[in-house]
Design a protein around this nucleic acid. Structure first.
Lengths: 340, 340
DNA sequence: TGGCAAGTTTCAATCGTTTGCAATCATATG
DNA sequence: CATATGATTGCAAACGATTGAAACTTGCCA
């Protein structure tokens, strides 16, 4: 802010009138003579006057800024969420301040502190993989700043959230595998402290139960980091152990890809011998070979819904009820599970 | 800002002292009695006092916010740039405000206006595909707000920039194709109004010239949108026209992928009969089949460098010289151009 | 000519923080 | 006892914009 930008004062001085008059002239307040109004508007135009949002924030006790704390923008899913948030926020005259936690707890806490210091009107949060201590989030609630979780929520917290129906998505994926004939389905699970991962596991288990498929504990392998090699190794180990496998449900697409890798290297046919379904429908999923079936999550819509919820809370005089918005997923069948 | 957050005033009132004293006590100013200081610090701690960044911004005429205008965060490359910007900014105590132009001129102009209204200390800009009118950018410069371009810069503007050596990257890609034996190399070009695309085309032309390969105008096809189908159609048309093709240099990976699609569908072998190289090294490039050779751009580093440059300008008393930082690219050879 | 109303404009306070200067206090010195 | 000294603390203005209330300027009528 080298502030070559003109202020109301500058205009007032040049026209030899008071700031109040300038302010009122610019907002079409009654009681300003047409002459004055025209002179003010002309000068404001000439100098490209823009109201100082900082000054307004201070006076109105409202910044019109939404803070967003997100694990990583480089994930395709999260970047679509950001797009949704931004579009909705911009439409309503809000700006967005984004901080990435890089999946680290400390960075998440620091980010929230910074955003609170900036007096954002509300906070949209998707917690990091590391987060289990909730002090930093409880402070936010205690201080009365509206907060909405998206995708990665926390339990037992007085805040609304927007999530995807992970349970149902997982159920759909596994049901699909069963219906094409799979009876020995491996689940590459995510870390247990993320609710989304627990839900996906539950969906997997329910589908097995509903279709009366015997469950084998060793068919669930936790892939903590959701990385390709991690999953490749997991599947490879299982194959070597001599277990029968005819289907894989991965809790994310990168793991699904790792599974495909391992299976291809073992010269096993996809989907004829082993079918694979991932989760999240990453950008690359349609591009790999074989293309990866997946559960698509409406990221953009999640962003918009989260923004809508937080704006609702910001504009509510009374603290309203907590809401949980659950968005539907969609099974996208591609070559990796397409048995005619 | 429902502002349950405590202010200096609240603390002052509770201790029956003045705001000045509280302020000084919190900043370890000399001339405050240890008793008072301790009482203030204790209370500030108890109430989780955070300085109001808005008030500070107004007083100091400095927001400690960097504005970022970017075409789309959903592009892997741009999201890595954002990470770089954010890391560097956070390290120096700055926050980042991000606006996406979605490749639209009008949205870009609006975003810049919003960020200027928020009195950001500096602006990092990568222009949209649509942008050719520069009025909105010239205003920024005229008003004395530091601005640095990254990746997509504009010419004839008094601002620093961080770019990738697109010319050299393209040259390397084409030279590589020539060295593995290609003599009829198609270039899927990007829109001419983006300097990066013109540079890539120049690199292509130079390499052909240096290696004395006759140039055929019809081997350059412009793909305006950088989409897969667009490129697939372009290559398909060329193949049908009966032209000899043994290499493709695409100005981005999505176009490269389109080329691969078209070639595979025509039952032509990659890389033996036609080799393909893309540009940008998108996340999926290593995952597709055949994996796509590409020119990697250091996105994260570009973000950090851009942030460093803008911080330098913000902190400089005198407006310094304009700098252009050029980052090196790297040719990554994968299956699509790997002839033994 | 005094007075009132309508039409304009200005004053002053506010938001939270900082900071130069003035004020207050206690203690010590002449 | 009066005053100087040093240690603390408070006052007030500033940043830019808004807004209720007060003040000013007209013109007009009795």
């Amino acid at each position: 802010m080298k502030s070559g930008q003109v202020t109301i004062k500058d205009i007032a001085k040049e026209l030899n009138i008071s700031c109040s008059t300038v302010s009122r002239a610019l907002k079409d307040f009654p009681g300003i003579s047409p002459t004055t109004r025209k002179a003010v508007v002309a000068l404001a135009d000439k100098y490209n006057y823009r109201p100082n949002a900082i000054a307004l924030s201070l006076r109105n006790q409202k910044t019109n800024i939404i803070g967003v704390v997100i694990p990583e923008t480089v994930h395709f899913f999260f970047s679509t969420v950001i797009s949704g948030i931004e579009d909705e926020a911009m439409k309503e005259g809000y700006n967005v301040m984004i901080c990435q936690s890089n999946e680290r707890y400390e960075r998440e806490a620091d980010s929230i502190d910074a955003l609170m210091g900036a007096r954002v009107d509300g906070l949209l949060v998707s917690i990091s993989r590391e987060t289990s201590d909730l002090k930093h989030l409880e402070k936010v609630v205690a201080e009365g700043t509206p907060m909405v979780f998206f995708d990665r929520l926390v339990e037992g917290m007085n805040a609304s959230s927007v999530i995807v129906d992970d349970y149902q998505g997982a159920y759909d994926a596994v049901e699909h595998l069963i219906k094409i004939g799979c009876k020995h389905i491996v689940h590459l699970a995510g870390p247990d402290n993320l609710i989304i991962c627990r839900k996906r596991k539950e969906g997997y288990l329910s589908a097995l139960e509903d279709y009366e498929i015997t469950f084998d504990e060793s068919y669930i392998v936790e892939c903590r980091f959701g990385e390709e090699l991690e999953a490749e190794k997991a599947i490879n180990d299982l194959l070597k152990s001599g277990k029968t496998i005819d289907g894989v449900f991965a809790s994310n697409d990168m793991a699904g890809l790792g599974a495909i890798s391992a299976i291809k290297k073992a010269n096993i046919k996809i989907p004829e011998e082993i079918a694979v379904v991932g989760f999240s429908n990453w950008q690359f999923s349609s591009l790999v070979n074989p293309s990866l079936s997946s559960i698509s999550q409406p990221g953009y819509e999640m962003g918009r819904e989260a923004a809508k919820l937080i704006l609702e809370e910001i504009n509510a005089k009374e603290p309203g009820k907590r809401q949980v918005k659950i968005l539907d997923t969609e099974l996208i069948v591609r070559d990796s599970s397409n048995r005619q």
